[in-house]
Amino acid sequence: DLSALRVEEVQNVINAMQKILECPICLELIKEPVSTKCDHIFCKFCMLKLLNQKKGPSQCPLCKNDITKRSLQESTRFSQLVEELLKIICAFQLDTGLEYANSYNFAKKENNSPEHLKDEVSIIQSMGYRNRAKRLLQSEPENPSLQETSLSVQLSNLGTVRTLRTKQRIQPQRTSVYIELGSDSSEDTVNKATYCSVGDQELLQITPQGTRDEISLDSAKKAACEFSETDVTNTEHHQPSNNDLNTTEKRAAERHPEKYQGSSVSNLHVEPCGTNTHASSLQHENSSLLLTKDRMNVEKAEF
């Protein structure tokens, strides 16, 4: 173990290094160091905050020279020094078990990766560091076993998940096959086929009936047209017969005018059967003409 005197000496050296690497504005270890034209180094955030307070150039807090945003430059070497100082402080805390008085939040800088452990060898070769390295080497064999167990647990979990997924996939297939086998029997399929065939026959029977009705309507229309044509021909046949009657009536009127007047009046009210309204109107006109002729003949006879 380190003596108290040596611990104090190391602590004083760390404090001196820390004062050199402090920012003059925030009085902390410089984060993202930036250098000016006057070779003074500050935190990048502190300098941008200072420049944004005034429009135009501002003055350096140490030498009062003008500073602009374009004049600022990043210093990589200074950032490396800060990183190495942080590593020294971490090693000091691990070796002594004491917390550094002016320690900052170094938890963000710590890294437990194997590459980081290899890099620590180049920091300080001390008894405390050696003991700590031995402890780490002793704890390393235990870690692979834990990793193997965790991997086995994960693989077993994956296997159970896969088996569950396969079961879920197989179950719908089985149910679907069961439904297909038990849903419709052979008799049901035959009945469905016969039902479809009967429906098709009914459709075939319905369509000819409609065509037959249309044919019957067409035949009825044709018969009505033929009947009207026969009526017209009958009226045409009746007209010459009426003319013959008129000639006979004229002759009778010349011989017996008194008797014919009474008979002509009675004939006005008689309509021949089986004739249309057109034929009756023609008869009325003929009878009126005959009456006028008879009157003329009677007057001539009187004179």
Rank of each mutant, 00 (worst) to 15 (best):
A279L: 08
R165S: 12
S288N: 06
K250I: 10
S281L: 02
T211P: 15
C90M: 10
T233C: 01
L27H: 03
R165I: 00
G199S: 10
D1I: 12
A193T: 12
I67C: 02
I67P: 06
D244R: 01
L29G: 01
G199Q: 04
S266W: 00
Q73C: 04
L155I: 00
P114V: 15
T68K: 13
E229S: 09
Q80P: 04
L29C: 11
S150E: 07
E258H: 13
S216R: 03
S145Q: 01
N157L: 01
L158V: 10
G56K: 00
S280C: 12
Q53M: 06
L72Q: 07
Q154H: 03
R6C: 05
G128D: 06
A91D: 07
E187K: 09
K222F: 00
D188L: 05
E84T: 12
P208R: 04
T163V: 00
I89F: 11
C225L: 09
D213S: 04
Q154D: 05
P114H: 04
V198M: 08
K54D: 07
I124D: 08
R251D: 10
N52L: 11
P24A: 02
T163C: 02
S186H: 03
K44W: 03
E202G: 04
R77Y: 13
L98I: 04
T233G: 12
P33F: 12
L282G: 12
Q80H: 02
L136S: 11
N52A: 11
K167N: 11
R295Y: 06
K87S: 05
S263M: 13
K250Y: 05
P33T: 12
Y260W: 08
A253D: 08
K55W: 00
E8Y: 02
R135I: 00
K54H: 13
T207S: 06
K134M: 05
I89A: 08
K87Q: 04
K118N: 14
E84P: 06
L27T: 09
P172H: 10
L136F: 04
N102G: 14
Q283S: 02
A4R: 09
F92I: 10
V121S: 07
P57S: 05
S58M: 02
E236K: 10
L27M: 11
F92R: 15
F92Q: 14
V82K: 14
L2S: 11
Y129S: 05
P33L: 14
H40I: 09
S3Y: 07
G210V: 05
A220R: 01
C26I: 15
E142R: 10
D66H: 04
Q201K: 05
G262C: 01
R130C: 06
S126P: 09
S35Y: 06
P24W: 14
S79L: 11
L146C: 04
F106Q: 06
L155N: 11
A301N: 11
V153D: 08
C38L: 15
E148N: 09
K31C: 13
A224S: 00
I88T: 13
I124R: 07
D39P: 02
L94W: 01
H256G: 09
Q205P: 03
K31T: 12
N131T: 07
D218Y: 02
R130A: 06
T248C: 15
N102K: 05
Y129I: 13
L94R: 11
I67L: 08
L21M: 08
G274V: 15
Q53C: 07
N276S: 02
V34K: 10
L98F: 12
R135F: 02
S216M: 02
L136N: 14
E22K: 05
L86P: 03
S113G: 02
E254V: 10
A279Q: 00
Q18E: 13
E22C: 06
S75C: 05
V265I: 11
T292D: 14
V270D: 10
S126N: 05
Q171S: 07
C26K: 15
D1N: 09
V121T: 02
L164Q: 12
L51P: 08
A193P: 14
S156D: 14
I215P: 06
Q209E: 12
G210D: 03
Q171T: 00
L289V: 04
S35M: 05
L289R: 13
C26T: 15
R295F: 14
E299D: 08
L203F: 03
G199M: 07
L151I: 10
L137G: 10
S75I: 05
V153I: 01
V121L: 13
R6N: 05
S113Y: 04
K221H: 11
F78Y: 04
F106K: 09
R70S: 12
Q93T: 01
V270M: 10
E258T: 08
L2P: 13
Q261I: 03
E99T: 07
F92C: 15
K134Y: 02
L136H: 06
C225K: 15
G262S: 11
E22S: 04
G56F: 10
Y100C: 01
I20H: 07
D39V: 04
L282Y: 03
C63P: 15
R165C: 05
S113D: 15
D66A: 04
E99M: 10
E226S: 12
R130K: 04
R130N: 02
M17A: 07
G159C: 03
S71P: 00
V34S: 08
L50V: 03
E28P: 14
E8I: 03
N157Q: 10
N102L: 08
E302D: 05
E258D: 11
T247I: 04
A253V: 10
F227P: 12
V190L: 07
P144S: 08
E9H: 06
P141S: 05
C225V: 13
D213C: 08
K192G: 15
A4M: 04
G262M: 01
H269C: 03
